[in-house]
Write a protein that binds this DNA or RNA. Sequence first.
DNA 1: GCAAATTAATGATTTATTCAAG
DNA 2: CTTGAATAAATCATTAATTTGC
Lengths: 222, 222
Amino acid sequence: MKVHQLPLPRAFWEQHEPSLTLDGGCKHLRPLAPKLASPDTVSSFDIKSFIRPESRPRKLGSPDGKKDSPQAQVETHPGGTRWNPTQEQIGILEMLYRDGMRTPNAQQIEQITSQLGKYGKIEGKNVFYWFQNHKARERQKQKRNSLGLTHSPRNSTPVTTISISLDTRGEVMERNEENSPYKRKCRSWSFESLEEESCRSSSPKEDEHRTLELFPLHPEGR
Amino acid sequence: MKVHQLPLPRAFWEQHEPSLTLDGGCKHLRPLAPKLASPDTVSSFDIKSFIRPESRPRKLGSPDGKKDSPQAQVETHPGGTRWNPTQEQIGILEMLYRDGMRTPNAQQIEQITSQLGKYGKIEGKNVFYWFQNHKARERQKQKRNSLGLTHSPRNSTPVTTISISLDTRGEVMERNEENSPYKRKCRSWSFESLEEESCRSSSPKEDEHRTLELFPLHPEGR
DNA sequence: GCAAATTAATGATTTATTCAAG
DNA sequence: CTTGAATAAATCATTAATTTGC
């Protein structure tokens, strides 16, 4: 069951804390870069609205007593089931992986997501995580194999791995690992606002087309 | 001179060369549990469009060619530089940190971002990263201190010291660190498409309504 | 005094670990 | 157990201070 995309019941941004309004005194120490610039003006910022992180320590708290209430875990459901990939989705992802894709950037993720969306509910983060996990687990599986079975191949038997070969110019990278030069792609992403009132959408233009998928997240702990 | 607050002309992260076609020869084997389901359908997926990393060689190529041209860095700024926080922004962030905020979730990040946006250009990811980095670096600083100066911990000032005390119910956590039980909050985020090139910078004044800022990212590389 | 070279900070990514759902 | 999700640690990369040579 994946009931993602729930309305996001943000109902507890109401509890504003008492005072505490960022006054001065916070600009000490600037190790090497006293950038200075026009100070003040900062004071108009009220923290109240921010200090409402999550409430719900969740289990796993400090072992020294302090167990949480009997209401151990009751939530998690509101929209929080995790992605359950379909066979088609997995197939595509693996194909992409075999073709050398390792860390897709935002554009790619977005495209992949929209494609995979045809086969089942999915979000960008799922795609992102899938690649992260798959990569990491392939790697450790490989390591375990090379260590456990072949008994310390000191000369680093290249386990072959991947060995992609399509012509993705300069994009494959890390086919050998073990000490890859640590290339970097670049992934772009951004947070998105999730609540309307705070920022009136004055222009009723409504989203152009790109559907920035919202991601609810149950406010409190995970 | 910090010319923050520049309009951000972001007009040159135009990806070129969409070529690169990852052709066939990649659909063998079905690694894991052919859970059946209609397989074919998958083949309608064209990878081509995904394997388009990004290009944008950028400098950084070879160390010998240090400083390639007279116009060494004329290009970096337009839209692709990294966030350069203003004093006000730092002040606010540090305040929030001292108040116990460690891993803001998407909602919080969004609000913080919009607030900090008053003092200079900023994106949600900047806020996120700031907390990540700040947290990590405070931690290591602390560790280094405790290890290096194990005697007379009554140093000048505990710097960090967090010691939050407002009543953020069950939220503070990890004020001590060193071996935290690995708490988990929950952060939500999502990718967004960044297709439309040069998101119209037509209205230079248009802030107010959230403008999901796109994030170009200089491709390739790094 | 300034601009190139050096260096300290720190923003941005990637990798490694860990937790928990199914 | 498998693996999606999330965080922390490690690293890379860039910027701004500081230093240095003129």
